[in-house]
Computed example of a mutant assay.
Amino acid sequence: MKKLAFLFPGQGAQSVGMGKEMAEQYPQAAEVFKRADAALGFSLSDIIWNGPEDELRLTYYTQPAILTTSIALLEVLKVEGIKPSAVAGHSLGEYSALVSAGAMTFEDAVRVVHARGKFMDEAVPAGLGAMSAVMGADRELILKICQEVSQSHGPVELANVNSPGQVVISGKAEAVAEAGRVLKENKGKVTPLVVSGPFHSSLMQPAADQLAAVLQGIAIQDAQVPVIANVTAKPVQTGAEIRDSLTRQVSSSVLWEDSILTMKNDLGIETFVEIGPGKVLFNLLKRIDKTVQGYLINSPETYAATVAALKGETTTC
Rank of each mutant, 00 (worst) to 15 (best):
A240D: 15
L44W: 08
F42Q: 01
G81Y: 03
Q14Y: 07
I71G: 04
Q25E: 14
V16I: 08
T105I: 07
V167F: 12
A173D: 14
P226E: 11
T291D: 13
V227F: 12
S201C: 05
R111T: 07
R181L: 06
E274C: 03
E241I: 13
W49P: 07
V87Y: 04
G188V: 09
D121L: 06
L98I: 00
A109E: 03
A29C: 07
E94W: 06
T68W: 00
L58I: 09
S196M: 00
A240E: 15
S85H: 14
S85V: 13
L141A: 07
V225P: 05
I66K: 00
L4D: 01
C317D: 00
I145H: 06
Q166F: 15
K286S: 15
A304E: 06
S45V: 06
V32A: 06
H153C: 15
E178S: 10
V167N: 13
V225G: 11
A233F: 13
G268H: 08
T262R: 13
E313I: 02
A208Q: 08
N162P: 13
N265S: 10
S70I: 07
A207G: 05
E148N: 11
A39F: 02
C146M: 10
V225E: 11
F8E: 04
I145A: 08
T314N: 03
M1V: 10
L128T: 14
G93N: 01
F119D: 01
V236F: 13
E21S: 10
F106V: 02
N265H: 13
Q210I: 03
E301T: 04
T238C: 12
G188T: 04
G89V: 10
G19I: 02
P192V: 09
K144S: 12
L261S: 09
P155D: 02
V149T: 12
P155K: 12
Q216N: 15
P300C: 08
I242T: 08
A88K: 11
E185V: 08
I71H: 06
L285T: 10
Q63H: 08
A65E: 08
Q11K: 05
L281A: 03
M204I: 04
D266L: 12
A208G: 06
S96F: 09
L284E: 12
V16E: 08
K3G: 02
K311S: 02
D266K: 13
D222P: 14
A137T: 14
Y61L: 05
G278Y: 09
A229N: 09
I228M: 11
G19C: 00
G117H: 05
V307P: 02
A29R: 03
S100K: 02
V280G: 05
L193I: 11
R57Q: 10
Y295E: 03
L58D: 03
L7R: 01
L67M: 02
D209S: 06
K311V: 06
A72Q: 04
A30R: 14
S91E: 00
A13F: 11
F6W: 07
K187D: 02
G41S: 08
P164G: 14
V168C: 12
V16Q: 01
V112H: 00
Y295M: 04
R181W: 01
M204Y: 08
A65L: 04
L141P: 05
A115K: 13
V16W: 04
A229E: 12
I169F: 11
G117M: 05
I269W: 02
D138Y: 04
V79C: 09
